[in-house]
Design a protein around this nucleic acid. Structure first.
Length: 551
RNA sequence: GCGCCAGUAGCUCAGUUGGAUAGAGCAACGGCCUUCUAAGCCGUAGGCCGGGGGUUCGAAUCCUCCCUGGCGCGCCA
């Protein structure tokens, strides 16, 4: 916000310099305005002179001097310019500029930080997409939170977002699920049964069987596996939905892989590929000639049994996404799916679509830590930890916060003991506590009869403390940060921002009294606090985390 | 063997897409509550940014070769 103002000022002087032949226009758009790392290096800095020196083959500091001379001394926004280091131009703003952000925050309220950069663009976020073979586990949890947070970020920046869950309730996995359920059912009735060798051993299967016994007694003992499969699917989906709802996630649509078959879309894809000579038969199977599309090896798309492999419906599904007219399609996958991505993209390309419109977020694995030791998990033995158990233990806020503390590319260590702690070590509380403290100050002010109406005149010049200046600068960064986090699909940056802002506030709180006998000063500081509270709350809400008023 | 991801303080991780003197939290040590919430703050200590080479005014960041860990490389999804 303020940064873009400064960039505009630098741009204007740059153009003036071009007109006066101080430097050439080859430099245009090559330089940037950044926030310097250290204090004393100004509010902003530009590398214009250094980049320019490289192009013009001259001394960067000399070029910087020319720039500063051109810019002159008298300016409504800039206090002074300074040449530093190898040739940076450090830019010091008038202090009063920073307080202008307060009116902006106050005016926009909940809308502060939102933008329109994605306006008019429709984006599909496909995530979770777990098949209904069991409750959502920790790995799905990271998927769900990343996907939903990315969706929220995109919404915040003006995209029209559609959340979709893709699933498959046919195939071998599901058959085994039906068999497992039937076996448990018969077991309950103490009838003869055989539990499948690779069956699902989780206790949730027994729960479903129990339910069936209670509802129908022994009536179902001759019912086909298909029946049990359907029952299990319904129960498990209901369970998954409840879990998602609990952690604040709702989908706009569920896409059943099966519809692709019913609508003939699978055959259609095969035909299209055939037409392009990208398909051949070998040993009874149908192969996709991915090697002709620059990949390492060809892949089977239809097994000799006649069943397609996952690749084929995946390609068909993605073609449907394109047909539905999305401008951007985002998939959230665990890194174990890494091998499947290139094949699907190659298929999409072969069908004539631009695979650049698809972005795949591959997140690394989650390990749970309890008592400093890794919790061993195995899907087969059903010793996995479910999201529900996790929420029972640490709550929704900590769950969301912890899953977002790392970028997707990094493996994530989820420390249960830390997430549970209601103490200073827990970063969730650190941020939330900041918000609660701000609310407390406002309550106090209200009790003292101090006005919380900031539309009237407040003497902003009184906000001249170092810590106040930090808060203002940090808050001014917020809209740009949200915008960048959205385009880069990086919700973790927002987490780090919130910790920084909360930290700035805690320091301020401990050093300066907001409420005092000085009514003017109190009013100014209350105004500042009001804005900090707004930004903290906006950021937390954006990530689906609550901002408590008391703790 | 090949592909992708990671390797930064004792631990867990950021690092604004190539910028200045390397950052946070936790752990350690030392301080701060008769004053708006101590779920907080202040200070100290802690570094061959995995290693070598290269690119340039400038590298944790880009290229290359190694080392270590994770995930894959299926007519499973």
């Amino acid at each position: 916000m303020i940064k873009s103002q400064v960039k505009a000022i630098v741009d204007r002087f740059f153009e003036e310099g071009v007109s006066s032949s101080l430097w050439s226009d080859r430099l245009r758009d090559r330089y940037s305005v950044e926030v310097p790392k250290h204090q004393g290096q100004g509010d902003f800095a530009t590398n214009l002179a250094m980049v320019g020196a490289g192009i013009e083959k001259c001394n960067p500091r000399e070029l910087a001097a020319r720039f500063i001379e051109l810019a002159g001394e008298d300016h409504p926004v800039i206090e002074r310019w300074e040449i530093a280091g190898p040739g940076f131009i450090n830019i010091f703003l008038k202090k009063s500029i920073w307080t202008t952000i307060l009116a902006e925050i106050n005016r926009q309220g909940e809308g502060f930080g939102l933008s329109r950069q994605g306006q008019g663009k429709r984006v599909l976020v496909e995530f979770v997409s777990a098949n209904p073979t069991g409750p959502l586990s920790v790995g799905h949890g990271r998927n769900a939170i990343i996907g939903d947070s990315v969706a929220r970020l995109l919404e915040a920046t003006g995209f029209q977002v559609h959340r979709e869950y893709y699933f498959n309730d046919a195939g071998r996995q599901m058959r085994v699920l039906g068999e497992s359920t039937r076996a448990r059912y018969l077991e309950e009735l103490e009838l003869e049964h055989q539990f499948p060798e690779d069956g699902y051993q989780g206790s949730y299967i027994t729960d479903i069987a129990d339910q069936l016994v209670q509802e129908s007694g022994a009536e179902l003992k001759d019912a086909p596996v298909e029946f049990f499969k359907e029952k299990a699917k319904e129960a498990i989906f209901a369970d998954i939905d409840a879990t998602l709802k609990r952690i604040g996630i709702a989908f706009d649509s569920y896409f059943n892989e099966h519809t692709l078959y019913e609508d003939g879309l699978i055959d259609d894809v095969v035909q299209s590929l055939k037409d392009q000579d990208l398909v051949y038969e070998q040993e009874g199977a149908v192969w996709f000639k991915t090697s002709a599309l620059g990949l390492e090896q060809d892949r089977v798309i239809i097994k000799s049994s006649g069943e397609p492999t996952y690749r084929l419906p995946d390609i068909a599904y993605h073609r449907e996404k394109f047909k539905r007219g999305f401008d951007w399609m985002i998939n959230v996958f665990g890194s174990d799916h890494i091998a499947t991505v290139p094949d699907v993209l190659a298929g999409v390309r072969a069908l004539g679509y631009d695979d650049e419109l698809i972005t795949v977020i591959l997140y690394q694995f989650v390990t749970l830590l309890r008592g400093g030791k890794q919790v061993k998990m195995s899907t087969r033995k059903a010793t996995f930890v479910t999201i529900d158990e996790l929420v029972d233990e640490v709550g929704v806020d900590a769950l969301r916060f912890f899953f977002l503390m790392r970028k997707p590319d990094s493996q994530l260590e989820f420390d249960l003991d830390l997430a549970k702690k209601q103490s200073q070590e827990n970063p969730v509380y650190y941020v939330q506590y900041g918000h609660a403290r701000l609310c407390s100050i406002q309550r106090q002010a209200a009790e003292q009869g101090v006005s919380l109406d900031f539309s009237r005149e407040v003497e902003l010049g009184l906000l001249d403390q170092e810590e106040e200046y930090h808060l203002l600068k940090t808050m001014a960064d917020y809209p740009g940060l949200v915008a960048d986090a959205a385009t880069d699909l990086a919700p973790h940056r927002l987490i780090f921002f919130l910790m920084e802002l909360a930290g700035n506030f805690h320091s301020y709180y401990n050093k300066h009294k907001v409420l005092s006998d000085d009514r003017e000063l109190s009013a100014a500081r209350l105004y500042l606090c009001h804005c900090v509270k707004t930004v903290l709350k906006n950021g937390l809400t954006l990530l689906g985390i609550t901002a408590p008023e008391r703790m």
